[in-house]
Amino acid sequence: MKTDSLLKTILALFALLSMPAGAAQLTIELDHTSRTWQTADLLKHPDAQTVHIVDDVSYKRAMTYRAVPLAALLPGLAPQSHLQAVALDGFAAELSAAPLLEKTGARAWLAVEDPTHPWPALMPGKPGAGPFYLVWTDPQAGPISPEQWPFQVSRIKQLKTVAERFPALLPDPKLAANDPINQGFALFQKNCLACHRLNGAGDAEVGPDLNIPYSPTEYFSGDFLKRYIRDPQNVRHWPQAKMPAFAASVLPDSELDSLVGYLKHMAGRKSQP
């Protein structure tokens, strides 16, 4: 048995060493199937093509990628399913399957970094968006939020919904389904949960908890929280800041009101992790 284990270890190391420098792998775990893709296999995928992104969320300019339609990598996935894209830095984007499976309008692509032609750094002294990056063509047709553009992706996995996994995030169940606070909860999942936890609930490891020990609605006075969400660097500037700005084209004023309303509501529903 020890010989078999040693042989498997040697074979795994040989496979790793035989990969081209800079090559990577992406694991996609669905309830009914699981597969690990190598960079070379994705670059040669029959559906791979050159994709032009007019206004790249991460690079803040036009970019061109070799990419595969994400739907082609999610065989048999139902539109009502839920996925999570996990990045190397702990960013965990919660993604509804339906937009990822669309073939018209806003369309999701897995951009694949060619190790022989690496992508530029996101900023001086920082790595690039590779090895895998979820990008969108015609994102305004979604609309698609900045948090739905996870980069440095290492794993995509099918999970239960956020509400099922993290009941500590739920608003008061007595609220009507169409209450703006419930809409704010949906917006929180789409725009905030990739970086932040709330009441200790969530998988992200990037930003601070948004309710424990204090909600930002408890220490941002006036309209400063809304101004912060619109343009964080305009309110609190520091070089290492990662939070993106949420323009009105992505998060309209009415939705921003609902999101802040949810956070205010949850300030009264604190629960310790």
Rank of each mutant, 00 (worst) to 15 (best):
S81M: 06
N234Y: 01
G222Y: 05
M123P: 01
L16F: 09
H237W: 11
K174D: 10
D4N: 10
H32I: 01
A163I: 01
D172H: 12
K270F: 01
L122E: 04
Q158A: 08
L11K: 15
F151K: 12
R197W: 00
K226D: 13
T9S: 13
A97P: 07
H82E: 03
L159E: 02
D89H: 13
P213A: 14
D209S: 12
S254G: 07
P79A: 12
A92P: 03
H117T: 08
L7P: 00
L198Q: 01
V86Y: 02
F14P: 04
W136S: 04
L83K: 04
F188R: 00
P146L: 11
T27D: 08
A108Y: 09
T39N: 07
A241H: 09
L193I: 15
T3W: 04
Q25I: 01
P213F: 11
D253I: 10
L7Q: 08
L134H: 03
A72D: 14
A108F: 12
L110D: 00
L263D: 07
L134F: 04
F185M: 10
F166G: 05
L175W: 02
D257F: 03
A106L: 15
L169G: 07
A97Q: 02
G222L: 10
R107I: 11
A121F: 08
F224P: 00
K174L: 08
L159C: 02
C192H: 02
H32V: 02
I10C: 14
